[in-house]
């Protein structure tokens, strides 16, 4: 494992921990999109079906379980926790995420490596991950003001994607391995979705001002 891949994984882990910490410390989930969290839970469950069939490393297995568990915990808190659920911005979080699920599944039925149960769900999870952040970005845009932790959550997720791309470039040249085109295209789309957010995040950081997205 190279440093870019490890950094990417750590940013991914930190982003989820930031969310859990925010929910735990403030007993509030305002500004967080439940729909994005549900999509990520679905992404992890469908991608890590290989937990039952292949063993890669202890690191791999542990990280997969942590990703599934922590995302499930966030979804649970936002939906069922008696205090936390009251702060959920239900009326702002109206992105029709079932369309994303449907579209990604149809895409996976047509574009995949092999026509097997696992490969189709793997491709589905890659496509869905690329667009899963959309409900969160729409929610941030609607609420206008972004609190620090939610801003950092999206920032860390974007950093995770950026490091994964560096990881693919590194592996291409140093390990003579190429990333599958399904991952590459989806990864680029996913990273591009963050570009706009990064621009405003950088501006607010430079001006030392609160992050504010234009309507």
């Amino acid at each position: 494992m190279n440093i870019f891949r490890f950094a990417g994984d750590m940013f991914h882990l930190i982003s989820i921990l930031v969310l859990l910490l925010k929910i735990y410390a403030t007993k509030s989930c305002s500004g967080i999109s439940l729909k994005t969290q549900e999509l990520y839970a679905l992404v992890f469950v469908t991608r890590y079906l290989d937990l039952f069939t292949d063993f890669i490393s202890v690191y791999n297995t542990v990280m997969k379980l942590v990703f599934i568990g922590s995302t499930a915990a966030i979804v649970w808190c936002m939906q069922w926790h008696p205090v936390v659920k009251r702060s959920y911005d239900r009326e702002l979080d109206t992105f029709r995420h079932y369309f994303l699920v449907g579209a990604c599944f149809v895409l996976a039925l047509f574009l995949h490596e092999n026509f097997t149960f696992q490969e189709i769900f793997w491709a589905f999870s890659i496509y869905l991950e690329a667009v899963a952040i959309l409900p969160q970005l729409v929610l941030l845009q609607r609420s206008g003001n972004v609190d620090n932790l939610t801003g950092q959550y999206v920032f860390f997720l974007g950093a995770y994607r950026a490091f994964y791309i560096l990881n693919w470039i590194y592996r291409y040249f140093m390990e003579q391995r190429f990333s599958r085109w399904i991952s590459c295209i989806s990864g680029l789309v996913q990273t591009a979705l963050y570009a706009d957010f990064f621009y405003y995040y950088f501006l607010s950081w430079k001006n030392n001002a609160k992050l504010h997205l234009p309507a």
Partner: peptide, 10 residues
């Protein structure tokens, strides 16, 4: 020769 990345990524 380049080989595809096996699914060892998260």
């Amino acid at each position: 020769k380049q080989d595809p990345i096996t699914k060892d990524e998260l």
